[in-house]
């Protein structure tokens, strides 16, 4: 594992910790898209079907369990926690995620590395992760104001994607035949979705003003 991959995993982990901290400390999930969180839970559950069949390293196994458990905990809090659920902006969270799930599944049936249940679901999780941030970005854009923790959450998620791309470039040059093209193309699409957000985050940081996304 190279340093970029590790840094990517850590920023991913930090983004989830920021989100858990926000929910725990403020007992509020205002500004957070439940749809994006449910998509991430689905991403982890379908990608880590190999949890009990393919052992890579203790690090991988622990991280997989952490990602599954934390994403389910966030969804549970937003749906069931008596205080947290009241702050959920249901009317702003309007992205039609069911079509995205369907489209990703059809794509995974057509484009996969091998036509097995595990590989199809792996490809599905890769495609779904690429677009899972969309409901969150739509919600932030519709609500206008973005609070600090929510902004940092999306920033760290974006950093994780960026670092994974550097990791793939590094692997391409240092490993003989690294050809995870499904993950690479989807990863590029996914990181592109953050470009706009990064730009406005940079503007707000530079001018020292509150982060606002244009409608």
């Amino acid at each position: 594992m190279n340093i970029f991959r590790f840094a990517g995993d850590m920023t991913h982990l930090i983004s989830i910790l920021i989100l858990l901290l926000k929910i725990y400390a403020t007992k509020s999930c205002a500004g957070i898209s439940l749809k994006t969180q449910e998509l991430y839970a689905l991403v982890f559950l379908t990608r880590y079907l190999d949890l009990f069949t393919d052992y890579v390293s203790l690090y991988n196994t622990v991280m997989k369990i952490v990602f599954i458990a934390s994403s389910l905990a966030i969804v549970w809090c937003m749906r069931r926690h008596p205080l947290v659920r009241r702050s959920y902006d249901k009317d702003l969270d309007t992205f039609r995620h069911q079509y995205v799930v369907l489209a990703c599944f059809v794509l995974a049936l057509l484009l996969n590395e091998k036509f097995t249940i595990q590989e199809v679901f792996w490809a599905f999780s890769i495609y779904l992760e690429a677009v899972a941030i969309l409901p969150q970005l739509v919600l932030l854009q519709r609500s206008g104001n973005v609070d600090n923790l929510t902004g940092q959450y999306v920033l760290f998620l974006g950093a994780y994607r960026g670092l994974y791309i550097i990791n793939w470039i590094y692997r391409y040059f240092t490993e003989d035949h690294f050809t995870r093209w499904i993950a690479c193309v989807s990863g590029l699409v996914q990181t592109g979705l953050y470009a706009d957000f990064f730009y406005y985050y940079y503007l707000s940081w530079k001018t020292n003003t509150k982060l606002k996304l244009p409608a």
Binding site: D50, D54, V56, M63, K114, W122, Y164, R180
Partner: peptide
Amino acid sequence: DKASEVHDEL
């Protein structure tokens, strides 16, 4: 065959 290798990334 690379396709049958395990996925080593998260």
